Amino acid sequence: MKHTTTFLALLALAGCAAPGSEVYRSYHSEAGALVDTGSFGNATMQNQHAMTNEGAYVYNLSHRFANEVATTVNFAFNSAQLDAGARDTLREQAHWIRQFPEVRFRVYGHTDKVGSHGYNKALGMARARAVVAYLASQGISTSRLEAVASFGETQPLIVTEGRERRNRRTVTEVSGFVKSNPIIMDGKYAEVVYREYIKSAVSGARWTIVGDAGSSEGSE
């Protein structure tokens, strides 16, 4: 009875307490209390602000790249060698990259959790460098492959301590724009984002690289 009386007293006190008082905060922080305290719209506001600068265009282009080509390649256990499937994926990435010479990319390397943290960090980097080297062999200037980075074992797709092929991977992502490119110097980011990507027109066709360190030509 004593506990019931105490609870009812607190309930009444909380009902009369002014917002911002210690009693009000204590009572309304219980489970089931109002979650949105007024900051819910901040994320939307920040997104609207982001739409006015380069970051929004990088974000949109990143999504487009991920939707139109496979961005991930996988590796055998304890290996940084590219197999036939990986090379096919990277050729597809290179097709896309060649049609957007104003864009820079970053390659991230990952491993599974077998082995030490330091060893896996180095292995992730070796995998990222193998991808950069292959993209370069397809006519992509390394000046556009902005950097390679290794997350090692720290970002698994599948949480397991054992061998997991899906965790042994690299991911290629859009990282920004080539600042020296004339179109970007004119601030025409949207023109790049919404440029048509004609996959069928690339296979077997001659290609020209523009906007890197000079230009070159080749064929598939």
Rank of each mutant, 00 (worst) to 15 (best):
Q93P: 05
D112K: 02
V35G: 00
N60S: 14
Q81K: 09
A70Q: 14
N47R: 13
N67F: 01
R64T: 07
T111C: 15
V58M: 06
A31H: 06
A56Q: 07
S62R: 13
I97F: 09
W96H: 07
D112F: 02
E102H: 06
N47G: 03
T37V: 08
I97M: 15
G20H: 10
S62F: 01
N78R: 15
T44Y: 03
N53Y: 12
L90D: 10
A50Y: 01
D88K: 11
R104L: 11
A84Y: 00
I97D: 01
Y24M: 00
P19V: 07
S29R: 15
L90Q: 10
V35E: 13
G38L: 10
S39Q: 09
S21A: 11
R25Y: 01
E22D: 15
A128L: 10
A86Y: 06
W96F: 15
K121Q: 13
F77M: 06
P19H: 08
K121I: 04
Y57M: 13
K113W: 01
S39A: 11
L61F: 13
N60Y: 11
V114Y: 00
Y27T: 06
A66P: 03
H63V: 00
F100E: 07
D88A: 14
A31Q: 10
W96T: 02
R104P: 00
H63M: 07
A130P: 11
G38P: 08
I97T: 01
H117R: 11
Y119V: 12
R25E: 15
Y119H: 14
D83M: 05
T37Y: 03
H49C: 09
N47A: 13
A33W: 10
G109I: 02
H95A: 09
A56N: 12
V114W: 00
N78S: 13
A128S: 15
V73C: 10
P19N: 08
A50E: 15
P101D: 05
E22C: 02
F75S: 08
H110T: 03
A70P: 02
S29P: 00
S26R: 13
T44F: 07
